[in-house]
Simulated scan of single mutants.
Amino acid sequence: MITKKMFFKICSILVMLLSMNYSNAQNFDINLLRDINIHRNKSLDHAFETITNTAVPISIATPVLIYSVGLIKKDSLTKKQAIYIGETFLASAFVTIALKDIIKRNRPYVTYPEIEPHAVEGSYSMPSGHTSSVFATATALSIAYPKWYIIAPSFAWASAVGYSRMHLGVHYPTDVFVGAIIGSGSAYLTHKANKWLNKRKHN
């Protein structure tokens, strides 16, 4: 049986281990960002700014265009797929905004002056909103239309946006990683939720 004293000892050891791991992870995080941002090819800044600026417009336009095609063709399945992709974008945005406000991580250039931001952002850093939205869209598209010619360019675009956030010095690598997980997870969970609701509707 675990006594109260043993319990507190175990908790203390776990906290110490987690602190050590966090410290190592933080060092890895900023060192990787320094390699990407400080040693970047500055002639590519404009290209990466263009890529990063496609995140929200494409994420919004994709379900709108697919729904429009569904309306024109009077195809209810296409309209359902469009609604699913739109739901995924909204779910990922909601989770991202909530986590930013909970975690309240400063942008890397605030904590580390050597990081050169291409633009100063107004919100918190963790997770990356651009990355979560593009990975939500890419994953939802891949689930809705599981063809290689949809999957490959979708994830190539999403990865380019994620990388652009580090190149431009506005996000840590872990911000981008967590953003990608939130986006992909939102798409998967929304898909599962829709399947469950449809099954209940037909029972």
Rank of each mutant, 00 (worst) to 15 (best):
K74G: 02
N41P: 02
I51L: 13
R40Q: 01
T54W: 14
L33K: 03
A93E: 06
I10Q: 04
V110S: 09
V95D: 11
H130K: 08
I143L: 15
T78C: 09
F155S: 00
N37Q: 02
Y149H: 07
I10M: 10
I72K: 04
I30K: 06
S23Y: 14
T111G: 07
T50G: 05
P57W: 10
K74M: 02
A93R: 00
I60S: 03
I72E: 00
N27M: 11
D75W: 07
A55N: 09
S76Q: 06
G70F: 04
H118I: 00
Y124I: 05
T96Q: 12
R107A: 08
T131M: 13
T139Q: 12
G129V: 11
H130V: 09
H46S: 15
L65V: 04
L90W: 01
T131Q: 05
A119G: 01
S76W: 01
I72M: 03
I72G: 00
K74W: 02
S132M: 09
D29N: 15
P108T: 00
S142Q: 12
I72F: 09
I13G: 01
C11K: 07
R40M: 00
S43I: 03
P113G: 14
E49L: 13
K80A: 13
V95P: 08
V134N: 01
A136N: 01
E114S: 15
K100M: 11
I66V: 05
I97P: 00
A55G: 10
K100I: 07
K79G: 05
G122H: 11
T54Y: 12
T52M: 11
I103C: 07
S133K: 07
I151S: 10
T78K: 12
S43G: 07
F8K: 15
S19P: 01
K73H: 03
V120M: 01
L71Y: 13
S123E: 13
S133N: 09
S76D: 12
S123Q: 06
N106C: 04
T111P: 04
A82V: 09
G70S: 08
I85G: 02
I66D: 12
G70T: 01
L32T: 09
L44H: 11
E121C: 05
N27S: 12
I115Y: 06
A138Q: 04
D29H: 10
S128F: 05
I143Y: 15
D101Y: 04
I66N: 05
N106K: 15
S125E: 01
F28Q: 03
L18D: 06
N21W: 03
V15P: 00
I102L: 15
N21Q: 06
L141P: 08
P153G: 04
E87M: 15
V56N: 13
Y112R: 03
S43D: 14
A98G: 07
S23P: 02
S76T: 07
K80M: 13
V110T: 09
T52Y: 14
L90I: 06
E116M: 03
I103A: 07
H130N: 09
L17T: 12
I38F: 00
V95S: 02
T111K: 10
L44C: 12
S132D: 11
